[in-house]
Write a protein that binds this DNA or RNA. Structure first.
Lengths: 329, 329
DNA sequence: TTGTATGCGTTATCAG
DNA sequence: CTGATAACGCATACAA
């Protein structure tokens, strides 16, 4: 392993000089700069990241905190998009990423979590899919100990940014499109887990729409569960003329139930997962670009880590219909 | 941040003594051991992983090298299982994991890849889904520079282990079951990408079966593609009485094609992904426990890193039929 | 059994 | 503009 010492010796300069040209310090003559760079290239020297972070006390190390709740198709797809978006962007920004699953820290106290991350040299954390019940994460955010970005939760303070699509508007938009296309009057809305922040927002969206359009709205808690959506659809769909769902998995459950019941109701979902193409019936849904959301989250974390303050970042969404022909590869 | 120095001072001993009790060295009196441990607990001291690895020159740091080939349902599900299995087991073994996507190193030379991983303090690498065309990875393995575990590829040497199910037997088993259940005579086999190591093995399995049972075998290259499987099924399924596929995605493509063609042929797949439950028809398939495979891979890497030699590890598979009722949550 | 001293590879602070 | 030198937090050979 070629170290800075080797470079220094070979170039006939001091270690500190090499360090300076590596880090683009001023006050280094062009001549020595060139000489050092030449040697660096020739020897294929790459700074030892471990030593750099020990010395500089800055790790640029980031943790992705991911919930592996239900092991459904949907969550796998979404989490993979999150991870790959983050990892790629992180490499670009020279950050180092580790993946942590919520289950790994679930019975730790804030202090334990803090020292765990600290011992790992973590400076920033991205939290995906946080709920109101995640007390430890709330405390972590309040402590201001780490720079944090929460995806799909409204936390913002000096060291915390939030990144998400506009769930209120997105739910409003997709439902409106579906309802107008089918001239509906009575909406069955299957909401998500009531501990989720997005659940509240999406509910706001559908309520706003129904008030505006003067539609009858029935809300049931489907807990983001395909099975639960299936049951609720069986029970309540007859009295409605469309089923608006707060997630694609619920939309799929609802649609499959309707097919089994042999009645037709337009259904719309939320997320834009590939599985929507396999159900046999097309549905409107909100396409969230999870990769991009995660890239933005990394960028935002980078911003925070360079000293800037937290803020709210909103990502654009898109309305789509997912067909089998479109997704088959 | 509480350091070893603080602990030493508080406990009234030398830093080296603290280090010794932390690392369970012999020759430390019970008394000081207790005292130190008490202080460690009280102060909530956790060793700084960065400093540890710089000092010991051993990082225990591991990279997961993942291919993000086609962004299909299947690969997301499989990769998430791989990642979560590895991350969890790694935490248990006190290893530190980073995720790297093949695309991030695809246009690097071996030297560049080596110094990249080296600079990141990586000592071991798990390669998922390697193909015969991955020249750089081959060279990396030959170099013996890192401890490596290849999942689904037959590489083994002093510093390299392979982990996978027995693809020959698995393909043989699942096809046999399907063929016997349906009394088939003429098999259409849709093989995978011919650069994949598993492709060869699975092909061996089906060939063996067909010879044994004296069945007519037609082999076509479906490239693990759902679309390609669809096309091939449309073209060739009429002349066969069953379709054996080297992957679930192809099985799904084939089954959907058969439904559209309005003819029936038993179809079997390979992998055991959840999506199989959404196709409407049940199929036999091989269930690979990707989480466990990845856990084993980490264990194996840990073994290699503690000085042992590479070997071949085989994981058990299972034959299943995936029904919608089973997977809905 | 315990403590001292040195080094790991780098950055940063000073003199020169 | 350049070069010693002291950190960073910990491990470890060696001395006591």
């Amino acid at each position: 392993m070629v170290s800075i010492k080797d470079v220094a010796k070979e170039a006939g300069v001091a270690i500190s000089t090499v360090s300076k040209v590596l880090n683009n310090y001023p006050n280094v003559s062009e001549k020595t700069k060139n000489k050092v760079n030449e040697v660096v290239d020739r020897l294929g020297f790459v700074p030892n990241a471990v030593a750099v972070s020990l010395s500089s006390k800055k790790t640029g190390r980031v943790a992705l905190l991911i919930k592996l709740s239900l092991s459904t198709q949907a969550s796998d797809e979404i989490n993979m998009r999150y991870i790959s978006g983050a990892v790629h962007k992180a490499k670009e920004l020279q950050l180092d990423v580790i993946t942590v699953f919520a289950s790994m820290i679930e019975d730790m106290t804030v202090e334990e979590v803090t020292s765990y991350f600290e011992s790992q040299g973590i400076r920033g954390i991205i939290v995906y899919g946080m709920t109101t019940k995640d007390k430890v994460i709330h405390k972590l955010i309040d402590s201001g100990h780490f720079k944090m970005v929460v995806v799909d939760a409204p936390m913002v303070n000096d060291s915390t940014s939030s990144v998400s699509v506009d769930h209120v508007k997105a739910q409003y938009d997709v439902a409106k499109k579906t309802i107008i296309e089918n001239k509906c009057k009575k909406v069955l809305y299957l909401a998500g887990e009531d501990t989720g922040y997005v659940t509240k927002d999406r509910l706001l969206g559908i309520k706003k729409l129904c008030e505006e359009k003067n539609l009858k709205l029935t809300v049931r808690n489907g807990q983001f569960s395909e099975l639960r959506a299936r049951e609720l659809t069986m029970r309540f769909a007859k009295n409605a003329d469309c089923v608006v769902c707060a997630s694609d998995m619920m939309a799929i459950g609802a649609m499959k139930a309707l097919i089994d019941m042999d009645i037709f109701r337009p259904v719309c979902g939320f997320d834009g997962i590939i599985l929507m193409g396999y159900v046999g019936k097309q549905m409107n849904t909100v396409k969230q670009d999870f990769t991009k959301i995660s890239e933005k989250a990394i960028c935002e974390l980078n911003r925070l880590m360079s000293g800037e303050n937290g803020r709210k970042v909103t990502i654009k969404h898109e309305l789509v219909r997912i067909k089998y022909e479109d997704i088959i590869v």
